[in-house]
Amino acid sequence: MNIIEIRNLHKVYNTTHVPVYALNGIHLIFKEGEFAAIVGPSGSGKTTLLNIMGGLDEPTQGSVTVAGTDIFSLGQRRLIDFRLQHIGFVFQAYNLIPVMTAGENVEFIMHLQGRPRAERITRTRELLTSVGLADRINDRPNKLSGGQQQRVAVARALASKPRFILADEPTANLDSRSTENLLDIMEQLNIGEHITFIFSTHDPRVVRKARRVITIEDGKVSQDQEKSSGS
């Protein structure tokens, strides 16, 4: 089943000087259970693409359909709720609320969804366990390493039971050990629980883990390569 269908996506940033053509006609389809990397040089449009796929920014032209819903036909208010219910996000940085503990950060998104407290508490513990941070549940982000913070962010993204998780350069700020650790956890979740991950990177070690690699250059898909799993 297709969970994301991207058709003829264009994005032009109207800066004060010249318009920037960030995306120039992107067609992509993602299926449930994918573990896909979007690669490309800096400025090629990876962040722009992920932002539009996640409904954070509007395209100049084209459409994004998530599980049958054209997300830009929803209107601002319903789009925010759609993100809350269906899309998980992991950003490069500033993922966590610094005044909340790791557990509270994970729990908070379920609170926004209006889930009952008992469910939130058990699920938070399960999720932090699955990213290997059960013992850090009561620590605030500033007590955690960068890699641990990103793992909390993954747990947080999973907490809302989204259709897929978008991660824009999740390892860009991490050292190689933390990078590997985070990727292993993402891979386990993908294989074990069929969580769909779509992440951007320009780190070759991360690319190697992906089962599908989409290369974009100058706002266009220049290569879309499927690998057989376990390569």
């Binding site: 208010r77 925010i80 993100r83 950003f91 609320i97 610094p98 998104i109 969804q113 947080r156």
Partner: peptide, 16 residues
């Protein structure tokens, strides 16, 4: 700004 942007991105609505 970044933290508030993140909260909006993950689905915290304007009223909240």
């Amino acid at each position: 700004v970044k933290e508030l942007g993140m909260l909006m991105a993950i689905g915290m609505n304007r009223i909240k």
